[in-house]
Design a protein around this nucleic acid. Structure first.
Lengths: 149, 149
DNA sequence: TCCATTTAGATCGTGTGCGATATATATGTG
DNA sequence: CACATATATATCGCACACGATCTAAATGGA
């Protein structure tokens, strides 16, 4: 009960999150491979399914990724034909990202994929929700967010 | 209470883990930069601090990473002077990874780093432990492990 | 013993992530 | 208006992460 440091890697929160992330990614891989997407590309599309026509900066904020990560990925999504990128006319610095027909169409695969992952966790829906809330809180704390979603 | 799909990215377990992982990584970065390590390099050393003289395969299993990830990283750790790599004499296929004096010495920074991260989470120790157990279980389920640690 | 199979690592190509830097456009100030 | 500053995005270099492939060493029969 003291402030002992864990002996094994598996007892560290950092490693638990790290390896869980990889496990989830590996679970998604074969599912997403069928529609030719990577996981980061998939969640980028999810953000756009939720709100189309977002700026690169808005996507960065939602996905909590840097432009240097997102810009190349958006180019790949564009090459795949799922999105369009266009300079804003009001503010020439901004780039608006929009779904194409193809990108919008991919959304129909989402429910089955989500179901497959949720089942794979072996957790009940309420337990998953609780875990999500806990993780969101942890992320907020550790990244020093006040509440600026 | 139905089987509704989440509306926002933040409500998905996959994204919660994904973004928590990034947040933790960003928290570690400045701490580890002081000793010239990346996070994956750090946990690799942690595994070796726990048990020195492991084969590449044993490290892969513990860290749940592929050889194609670990081999280049081990080479970098060797270049940094923290580990040695040597073919096993019994089984010439195996490569034994061992800590150098320098690599062993880095362990003294570990408690402070861990403390800093744990505090950053803003969670009580028991809550963190519970979260770790939950995540370990989720990872086990989703990666289809029976119990083969 | 001979040879197919298995196992342990290494290598390669592609796609993230991110710090540092660059560029162009907007904004604010005198 | 002129210019310093701030903002939005892009580019570059480096380090993962992993699937696919390769090589060499062990193993397991017939």
């Amino acid at each position: 009960m003291k402030d002992q440091l864990p002996e094994h890697l598996d007892e560290y929160i950092c490693f638990a999150v790290y390896s869980a992330q990889h496990a989830i990614n590996r679970a998604y891989k074969p599912l997403l491979a069928e529609i030719g997407l990577t996981y980061p590309q998939y969640i980028t599309l999810m953000a756009l399914w939720s709100h189309d026509h977002q700026t690169v900066g808005a996507l960065c904020k939602q996905l909590r990724l840097d432009t240097s990560t997102l810009t190349p990925m958006l180019k790949r999504l564009q090459t795949l034909g799922h999105i369009r990128r266009a300079r804003s006319t009001e503010d020439e610095r901004q780039v608006i990202v929009s779904l194409t027909e193809s990108g919008r169409d991919l959304q129909r695969h989402s429910p089955a994929i989500t179901r497959c992952i949720v089942e794979g966790t072996g957790f009940a829906a309420e337990d998953l929700n609780a875990l999500v809330r806990t993780l969101d809180q942890l992320r907020g704390n550790i990244s020093g967010e006040s509440d600026l979603t």
